[in-house]
Computed example of a mutant assay.
Amino acid sequence: MRRVTKAVIPVAGLGTRVLPASKAIPKEMMPVVDKPVIQHVVEEAVAAGIKDIVLVTRSGKASVEDHFDCHYELEAELERKGKTSILEAVRNIIPADVSISAVRQHKALGLGHAVLCASPIIGDEDFAVLLPDMLINSHGLPKADLTAMVEAYQDSGHGQIMVEPVPMEHVDRYGVVDCEGVSISAGQSADIARMVEKPPVDEAPSNLTINGRYILPARIMELLKDTKPGAGGEIQLTDAMADYLSEGNLQAFHMSGKTYDCGNKAGYLQANVVYGLQHAETAESLKAFIKELDL
């Protein structure tokens, strides 16, 4: 059985959409309830069977790496005070069999370039890419969406791109997949004929938008080496995937949950409300607070 055990998480972005909050704090370290966004994403990857996580980072992002390291002084103080539950939460951020490494993206040359920076660690293996400002909420589902997408990859042998339907009038904000009219139900996959970046509403081939989760064949790394700068003068992952379609299959995986874009202020606030209502420690008080609001 084919397996994917490595993931690339690009964390080198400037977080301009959430300034001034991200001026001194990496956007990936902004908390959603009691965990930074990046921890939610790493936990999602680990739950899907990922064992090796590569953070693509830059200067000023040391706190992202530090978060997954040991903090001996803090742990000793929590142990001295008998705060066992908090101590366990700090110690067990990642399982012992999961490794997190970091590589630098020295220039902001696009998502495709960020992924390519991880190639020495990924090697010739198929790999996942998870964008750290997109949270995929699978609460209440039998299986998390990324886990289900990994299984779809294992069953089909084809790379998978997670997609989510949006109102047709909003498709011009996203990358859109063209499955040539094939209807995909939640939890299912279909072959992608092409991908269109931010198409005009009247030209969009579907309302299925790419939402920041990918399982990609190793060949993508080779294609990225030859990918020329595209939109915005940057090396785009979408361009390499489009090139791959001329030689192999990629499939759109229709997610079942809900995406929250924590890279913008509204999405970040929505995520905190939703995750807060799902958290055992905060659900009841937050629910009561919302009922009291004069909206």
Rank of each mutant, 00 (worst) to 15 (best):
K225M: 11
G248W: 02
P200N: 06
L216W: 01
A193T: 05
P217Y: 03
I220R: 08
Q236E: 14
A193L: 07
E222L: 09
S256K: 14
G233W: 09
A193K: 10
E247K: 05
E234M: 13
G212A: 06
L245D: 12
G257E: 03
R194Y: 13
S185D: 09
L216G: 01
A266V: 15
G248P: 03
M195W: 06
K258W: 14
F253K: 07
V182I: 12
L224I: 09
G232N: 06
H254T: 00
A240Q: 10
S246H: 14
G267L: 06
I215M: 10
Y268E: 11
D243W: 12
P229C: 05
L237C: 01
G263W: 11
P199D: 02
N207M: 04
A186H: 00
D243H: 13
A240K: 11
I192W: 02
C179G: 06
L237Y: 03
P205L: 00
D226G: 10
G248Q: 02
E247S: 12
V182R: 11
Y260E: 08
P199K: 01
T259A: 15
G212P: 07
Y244E: 09
G232V: 04
E247G: 09
Q236G: 07
D239F: 02
R219I: 10
I192N: 01
G187S: 10
I215Q: 08
Y244K: 05
K228Q: 15
N207G: 00
L223W: 06
E247Y: 04
D202P: 07
C262K: 12
A190D: 00
V182W: 00
L223G: 07
L269K: 14
D261T: 10
S246G: 12
T238K: 15
I215L: 15
D202W: 11
G257H: 00
G187K: 07
A242Q: 15
E203Y: 10
M255V: 13
Q236D: 11
L216H: 01
S185V: 00
Y244T: 10
D202C: 11
S183D: 06
A242M: 15
D226C: 09
E180I: 08
F253P: 08
S183W: 00
T259C: 14
Y214W: 03
L269H: 14
E180K: 13
M241G: 04
G233Q: 06
M195H: 05
C262P: 11
E197K: 13
P205G: 01
F253M: 09
S183F: 02
V182F: 05
M195I: 13
A218F: 05
P229Q: 05
Q251A: 04
P199S: 03
V201G: 10
R194W: 14
S246Q: 13
A240S: 12
A190Y: 00
E222T: 11
S206V: 00
E180A: 13
E234W: 12
N211Y: 08
I210Y: 08
R219G: 07
K228E: 15
H254W: 03
E197W: 13
I215F: 09
R194G: 13
M221E: 08
D243C: 12
A266W: 15
A190L: 00
T259F: 13
V182N: 06
N211D: 05
T259G: 14
E222V: 04
A231C: 12
G230A: 08
I220E: 08
